[in-house]
Amino acid sequence: MAERRIRILLSKPGLDGHDRGAKVLARCFRDAGFEVIYTGCHQTPEQIAAAAIQEDVDVVGLSCLSGAHKYLFPQVVKLLKAEGADDITVIGGGIIPEQDMQPLYDAGLKALFTPGAKLDSLVEWINTNVTPRA
């Protein structure tokens, strides 16, 4: 039976290895019925963009706690766009100061989650805002 299932790539760009949040999210998304491709940590934006395209995902979720999100998150969006894959929704999470939020949204991030975000709220955001491609 035809049935679109949401596919999500979860990745940690940059050199930071604090993957507690990413791993908890990976399990949570699986339990929400999504197909989760988890790439682990220490990824370059180039690797993430290439993986997102090969995996034909609907969403790329980035987690970064090192403060390098200002460079890394927009870079992923930019690379996806260059490959004509700007229909992929890119969201991010981590320690993101308020003043960085608007520039990141302007750069094409669709949602940003900071510490304390409930798992349910993330699942809900995806269910509300992401329709698997037709």
């Binding site: 699986r30 339990d31 929400a32 988890y38 682990g40 090969q54």
Partner: peptide, 30 residues
């Protein structure tokens, strides 16, 4: 495997094949 309870899946094989991510001669699909 797909979880028989939720229909979701955690696909993690890529994590061990990262170095080929940018190689145009390799196409990896989970």
């Amino acid at each position: 495997p797909t979880s028989p309870f939720t229909g979701g899946a955690l696909l993690g094989d890529r994590i061990r094949m990262l170095r080929h991510a940018e190689d145009k001669g390799v196409f990896l699909r989970s």
